[in-house]
Structure formats: C-alpha cells, structure tokens
C-alpha cells in the first residue's frame, strides 16, 4: 500500500499553489489513501481528505448516468463552499489530484494549471494496482 509522503511530488504540488488564492493540494490513490500533499497539510487532515475525496470521486462517477445514458467518463469534480472551492481531477490511472482554493480564485486558471501539473507528473503519479499475492 502507498506510503504517505513522497517529497518529490510535494514540491511539485507546492508549485501548483503559486496560483492566486490556491490553498492546498493533495494527491490520493484511487482507493482513498494519501500519496503526497503540499506543505502545511498535516497527516491526519491529509488522510481524512484522501478518504473523503475518493468517496466524492466515486459518487461523481456514478452520477454520470444523469449526464448521458451511457454514463459518460468522469473528468473533474468541483465543489463550491461559502469560502472557496474544491477541485478534483484524475492524475494518472490510479490516483486523483485535489486542490482547494479561496472563493476569489480564477477557476479556469486553476483547472488549467491542475491539468498541466498532471501532465508534467505523468506516470510517476499513478499508483499501481495491488498484486493479489503481495502482502499489505
């Protein structure tokens, strides 16, 4: 199973936060575990966010049948709060990238930046599926 922090990913996530009003960034495995996060996110918060965002992604995907009958492919989840936003996009086959931002953030700019970040990270970001025989 994924060990929590990967420092080389963390600094790329920190760079993503150059965008004005961006707050935190975190990469989670599709099964809901923390892979890496930007500075200033403590481990307990990271683990809770990884878990809840995996649920959010799962729910978003299953609600896709409301968009098209053949359940169109999920690409992004955006949640608006009184004081900001949460954005979730796929980051490789086995992981997701979640970023939080204040309400003044440029939504288009941050979405674009997230896509670029995922492109830049490429394969190292994806988390391999567990082999049936490996130990946990």
């Amino acid at each position: 199973m994924t060990q929590a922090a990967r420092p080389n990913l963390s600094w790329i996530l920190n760079e993503l936060l150059d965008i004005l009003h961006a707050r935190h960034a975190l990469v989670l495995s599709a099964d809901g575990l923390t892979v890496a996060s930007s500075d200033g996110v403590n481990r307990n918060l990271a683990d809770r966010i990884a878990a809840s965002v995996s649920g959010l992604q799962s729910l978003s995907r299953s609600a896709g049948e409301f968009v098209t009958e053949d359940n169109t492919v999920w690409q992004q989840t955006m949640v608006q709060y009184q004081d900001g936003y949460l954005f979730v996009i796929a980051a490789g086959s086995g992981s997701h990238l979640v970023v939080s931002a204040g309400s003044q953030v440029d939504i288009e700019a941050i979405s674009y930046r997230m896509e670029k970040t995922v492109e830049r990270l490429g394969d190292p970001l994806s988390v391999a599926p567990r082999e049936p025989s490996t130990q946990g």
């Binding site: 922090a5 963390s10 996060s37 500075d39 996110v41 403590n42 307990n44 918060l45 990271a46």
Partner: peptide, 11 residues
C-alpha cells in the same frame, strides 16, 4: 514526513 505539519486544531 516533513511534508506534514501538525496543527493544534487537529490532535
């Protein structure tokens, strides 16, 4: 684990 700073609000 240097990426995680523990805050007081989260014991």
């Amino acid at each position: 684990m240097q990426d995680y700073i523990d805050s007081d609000s989260d014991p």
